[in-house]
């Protein structure tokens, strides 16, 4: 993200994001934050959002949202088989392996 250093250091008057929001995002990202880290992260994320508030203040009516920083479209490859990795080499780096597959702890909860 192109967030400038000045913006990051600017302390917002009213926090744009609550500690509870940050805590939720951290949980979703499987991050364990201490109380101190949570306070710091909340302040820093608020500063970032503050920076975007500057953009919100601009009159952007009639400006197409920019989805990508480059004007490229349709970058594609042909449907042709390429090289694959050596299975033994890959599995050799896994902590646990069984029957040519990665062995992982039991999966519970989140379904897909």
């Amino acid at each position: 993200m192109g967030v400038g250093g000045d913006s990051l250091r600017r302390v917002p008057d009213v926090p744009k994001i609550s500690a509870a929001d940050v805590s939720k995002v951290a949980t979703l990202a499987r991050l364990c934050l201490t109380d101190d880290e949570l306070t710091t992260a909340t302040a820093e994320l608020s500063a970032m959002l503050d920076h975007f508030a500057d953009i919100d203040a601009l009159d952007l009516d009639g400006v197409e949202p920019m989805m990508q920083p480059t004007p490229l479209a349709n970058v594609m490859r042909e449907d042709v088989e390429g090289e694959t990795l050596d299975r033994d080499e890959v599995l050799g780096q896994a902590p646990l392996v069984e029957d040519g597959r990665f062995r992982v702890p039991p999966i519970l909860g989140i379904q897909e």
């Binding site: 490859r77 042709v80 088989e81 390429g82 090289e83 694959t84 990795l85 299975r87 890959v90 599995l91 029957d99 040519g100 597959r101 990665f102």
Partner: peptide, 15 residues
């Protein structure tokens, strides 16, 4: 470009 093939040996079509 890893192959899309059903029924191959596990973890052989990986990149």
């Amino acid at each position: 470009s890893a192959p899309n093939r059903f029924g191959d040996e596990p973890n052989t079509n990986i990149d």
